[in-house]
Computed example of a mutant assay.
Amino acid sequence: MTVPNDHITTPPDRPGETALYRFYDNSDRLLYVGITDCPRTRWADHRRYAAATWWPLATRVTVDWFGAREEAAALELQVIRTSAPLYNSGGAPSPHRERVPGERLCPRVNMERFREATGGGFQVPGRPWRNMDVAVAETIAEDIESGRLLAGAPMPSATELVNRFGVSVNTARRAVRQLVAAGEIEPRGSGSGTRYFVTMKRTDLADKQQGDEPVIEGQMGSQPLNGNDARAILGIVWKWIADANDGLGVDVGDLQHELEQAGYGPLPEAQGD
């Protein structure tokens, strides 16, 4: 989902230069600080991934241009450390270093969401320090292990992960790549049509075959579906609906393909007597 904002005007690109931008709300609170070589693309990401947090609150933006990206990045970090933007997650004070002069802890609404969603954030009792993407990946793996995410079910979209964990879309994508590498989820499709699903492991398949109501693998068939199958199918359908509402250009053919890839093909033709 994207959210328009009539208060914000996108400046034209300046080839070879990097923009440092600051978004403010109507009380002049600093919401978010960032750098980009292409404001149009970067702010399109904000319209989508910050739609449920700070983007609708923004009423003005300032933009300063720099000839060197390194210079813009250094000032971005300084602004985050000293001006306490509400929704930046990166660049915040770390317990592993001394605070710089003038630095103060950021309120960071996103960081509070991150800590809550991951059960402790960077540091969980009894575990070593972990990066944001690792914390997100481990939390999703726990969802899979506990059954909150069922085998064969679609993964939450990038937008859903951003809104749940309060992280950037790049952090969410790194977490997804870690889960793929660990065999917890698997990609289906290619390019912009790639979707991710919880891996069907051998134990999951054995459970399906030994259930009280057997299911014919690869078909919805004449035999009844169990509860896990029904939830997996609903998850695929609702994911398709969400993508359609986000304007991602999906159609019924995409839905059919994802159902078939998950092992839920069309009903077999009725047999004559």
Rank of each mutant, 00 (worst) to 15 (best):
Thr82Arg: 11
Val33Met: 08
Glu112Met: 12
Ala270Glu: 09
Asp207Met: 10
Asn226Arg: 08
Gly90Pro: 11
Trp54Gly: 04
Gly183Phe: 01
Ile35Lys: 06
Gly183Ile: 00
Ala175Met: 09
Ala182Asn: 14
Ile241Asn: 08
Arg115Glu: 14
Arg148Gln: 13
Ser94Pro: 01
Val136Cys: 07
Val198Cys: 09
Ala230Asp: 11
Glu103Lys: 00
Glu145Asp: 15
Cys106Met: 10
Gly191Leu: 01
Leu86Ser: 11
Gly263Lys: 01
Pro85Tyr: 07
Leu20Gln: 02
Asp229Trp: 06
Ala84Met: 08
Val198Asn: 05
Val167Ala: 01
Ala50Pro: 03
Phe165Lys: 08
Gln271Thr: 09
Pro214Cys: 01
Trp65Met: 05
Glu112Val: 12
Trp238Glu: 15
Asp37Arg: 14
Pro93Phe: 10
Arg127Ile: 04
Ile144Asp: 13
Glu217Ile: 09
His257Gly: 05
Pro93Lys: 11
Thr62Asn: 07
Thr118Met: 03
His7Phe: 09
Val198Met: 00
Asp204Val: 02
Thr59Phe: 05
Glu98Leu: 03
Asn228Lys: 07
Thr159Lys: 13
Leu150Ser: 12
Arg47Ile: 03
Gly249Ser: 05
Trp43Arg: 13
Leu86Asn: 08
Thr9Leu: 10
Asp254Pro: 04
Val180His: 01
Gln123Asp: 09
Gly126Asp: 04
Leu77Val: 05
Asp133Tyr: 12
Arg104Thr: 11
Asn226Thr: 03
Ala244Gln: 06
Leu205His: 10
Thr10Val: 14
Arg164Met: 00
Ala52Cys: 11
Arg108Gly: 08
Thr203Tyr: 14
Lys201Gly: 07
Val180Gln: 11
Ala135Ser: 09
Leu149Arg: 12
Gly147Trp: 00
Val215Pro: 11
Glu184His: 14
Gln178Val: 10
Asp251Leu: 05
Val167Asn: 07
Gly102Met: 01
Leu161Pro: 03
Thr59Cys: 05
Leu31Tyr: 00
Asp273Phe: 07
Thr118Phe: 05
Gly221Glu: 02
Trp129Asn: 14
Arg40Trp: 02
Arg113His: 08
Arg22Leu: 10
Ser190Asn: 13
Thr10Glu: 11
Leu20Phe: 06
His96Trp: 15
Trp54Pro: 08
Val33Tyr: 00
Arg130Phe: 02
Tyr264Gln: 04
